[in-house]
């Protein structure tokens, strides 16, 4: 069995280069590759294009990469939780492509699945449709949207094995499976890394073929944005 294990986050991300296109799994701060982001922060790179549903918060997640001015462009669907992001965007320092969440998910899925483009109804008649081909199918208008791919995709799973197979937990799955498939080099960090053969093949969410490097993450903070409890 091919062993995809690397020692740690530093080793996993060492060849990420300036101006690369990166994907990050996660929704809000749930299911984000915390260890890989920390390792990227220690590198002297910039001009990055980051594809991620959100942009973290000011002091956590991708927000930290924005603070360090490592990011040239963000491709996201919702960035409401990040004041520094909003500042850089309104001042023109940061390029931003905001796209509907389902379109983002499907563009990434298409990238991993070898589908160069597809039609979706989301955004018809809005500024998202500007410059895009419109076509009518069965009396309804649809927009042509293209695939998204990345030089590196960073994903976070609950469990993984040395062959790169991944299992996610709860709603921390979100964008991780599609991004795993859409990266030229996909780097997976997991809370629990086990030898190949120990995970039930029936339960695998991301087959190891999509993962080039895997490591056991550590010190997960798993920060909660809106801690809401019932009395």
């Amino acid at each position: 069995m091919i062993n995809k294990t690397v020692k740690n986050a530093q080793e996993a991300v060492q060849d990420v280069f300036s101006n690369a296109v990166l994907m990050f799994g996660g929704f809000g701060l749930s299911g984000i590759p915390e260890n890989s982001i920390q390792a990227l922060l220690a590198m002297n790179i910039n001009g990055l294009t980051c594809i991620s549903n959100n942009a973290g918060v000011d002091d956590f997640g991708i927000g930290l990469m924005l603070q360090k001015r490592m990011v040239k462009k963000m491709i996201s669907s919702y960035v409401g939780e990040n004041a520094e992001f909003e500042r850089q965007l309104l001042s023109g320092e940061l390029e931003v492509e905001l796209i509907p969440q389902g379109t983002l998910a499907e563009r990434v899925r298409a990238g991993g699945a070898g589908i160069p483009a597809f039609f979706t109804p989301a955004g018809v008649g809005t500024e998202v449709a500007e410059g895009k081909e419109l076509r009518e199918f069965d009396d309804k208008l649809y927009l042509l949207e293209r695939w998204l791919k990345a030089d590196f995709a960073f994903v976070k799973a609950w469990k993984g094995d040395t062959a790169g197979n991944l299992i996610y937990k709860g709603t921390a799955r979100n964008f991780n499976p599609m991004m795993a498939a859409a990266g030229k080099i996909t780097i997976a960090e997991v809370e629990e890394l086990v030898p190949a053969g120990e995970l039930d093949p029936n339960q695998i969410h991301t087959p190891g073929i999509y993962v080039q490097r895997i490591f056991q993450g550590k010190n997960y903070e798993k920060r909660i944005e809106q801690r809401t409890v019932r009395k």
Binding site: F27, G28, L29, S30, G31, N53, E81, Q101, G102, L104, A105, E106, V108, R109, W158, K169, G170, T171, A172, R173, N174, F175, N176, P177, M178, H205, K222, R223, I224, E225, Q226, R227, T228, V229
Partner: peptide
């Protein structure tokens, strides 16, 4: 559970018979 949130990023629980899946 930080791995269980809604679209507003609030912590939630699941009902009986729930299903989890990807964003796609």
């Amino acid at each position: 559970d930080p791995d269980l949130i809604n679209a507003g990023k609030q912590t939630i629980t699941m009902t009986k018979g729930s299903a989890l899946f990807s964003s796609a």
